[in-house]
Design a protein around this nucleic acid. Structure first.
Lengths: 201, 201
DNA sequence: ACCTGAACACCGTTCAAGT
DNA sequence: ACCTGAACACCGTTCAAGT
């Protein structure tokens, strides 16, 4: 029974993204040639370029999947009844689902994303969406009386997003075990920032 | 009067690093060919390779300068009498001395640093040094009674380092104006984290 | 030693030709 | 349409030859 073209297309694209991810992690983005990806995926250059127009498009495909993963987790914050517990859950979920390979891939892709203007914009948009989700969660938490009334949702959301980015960034240097171990500290810092009464002079 | 070789060597190396930085910012690390750097620096490939053994060595040279810049600022925290004021100063100093070009270069170099194992180790070491400087400052601040006695210096230092990294990282996406505007929020978050009494259940 | 520029092995991408 | 693999323009790096 002949498969529809759409199905073949989807399968081939997925196979190429997997092969590319394997190569990027094993040799680095820079050192990975299209020939490497072709060999890993078991197809000729012509075939690969039938599915992806360039090396950059492959990176875009991998970025998309990463963004979906983070987005799904952060979006839960927007509707959480207990924001602080949900934030701790989100951090734990990210840590639990991030392997050495994921971190290496994240590093390679982040690196590439920073230099391709189109991807930089995509990353900025993903960031805005993340901040918006956290902000929505904070507004809800404040109206429910779950966090201090002095908390300014927008500012606090940006600070939490900075914490998550810094945590992931350092995770690429320090590995998945550090990421897991440090997750608790991150949640604790969030609690301190949000629950506390001001002691300003 | 003939210059000593050491002097010529130093001048040429500096000229090459400047030329490379200009190219990296203008075209991106990837899109910059050694020929571009040669043209920008006004020398032939053979000459350039006389001073730097590879494109990677040029990156290492630029990284070194960046690390020195951040290190000098963070080291001041270790001996500060008023840690919170010194932290706010450090953030402001970084923001004030970071231009669009610096951020673009930082992004390019960070990207490259992540994939070259030797540079990744260098970045990790710079990070450890930064955390150590902050930790020393926190210990001093605690003994002086400047911050809450409940603060665990090591954990708090890691959290502050995460904040700085996340701030700089997002700065590469959002530009120098955002970096300056958000600096105050960063210092405020640090104050809240360090001054506050625990309100844990 | 410092410098030149041609040469080498290799890269991302294209395209005529097949099914 | 899907696929092949040779071909093209270009890259980082080297090296014989000059001063």
């Amino acid at each position: 029974m002949r498969k529809r073209d759409d199905e073949l297309n989807h399968e081939r694209r997925k196979a190429i993204l997997d092969a590319a991810a394997t190569c990027f992690v094993r040799e680095g983005f820079h050192a990975t040639s299209m020939k490497d990806v072709c060999t890993q995926a078991g197809m000729s250059p012509g075939t690969l370029y039938h599915y992806f127009g360039s090396k950059a498009e492959i990176v875009a495909g991998i970025m998309e999947a990463e963004a979906r993963f983070l987005r799904a987790i952060l979006d839960q914050l927007a509707n959480a009844d207990d924001f602080l517990a949900a934030f701790a859950d989100a951090v734990a979920t990210i840590a639990a689902n991030t392997t050495e390979r994921d971190l290496a891939l994240y590093a390679e892709i982040s690196a590439e994303a920073l230099r391709q203007p189109a991807f930089r914009e995509k990353a900025a948009e993903a960031d805005r969406a993340g901040v918006a989700a956290i902000e929505a969660g904070l507004k809800r938490a404040r109206s429910l009386g779950r966090i201090g009334g002095h908390v300014e949702p927008r500012q606090a959301a940006e600070t939490l997003a900075i914490l998550i980015d810094g945590w992931l960034w350092q995770g690429t240097l320090k590995g998945p075990d550090w990421l897991k171990a440090r997750g608790g500290g991150l949640a604790h810092a969030a609690k301190t920032l949000l629950q506390t009464q001001e002691t300003a002079p």
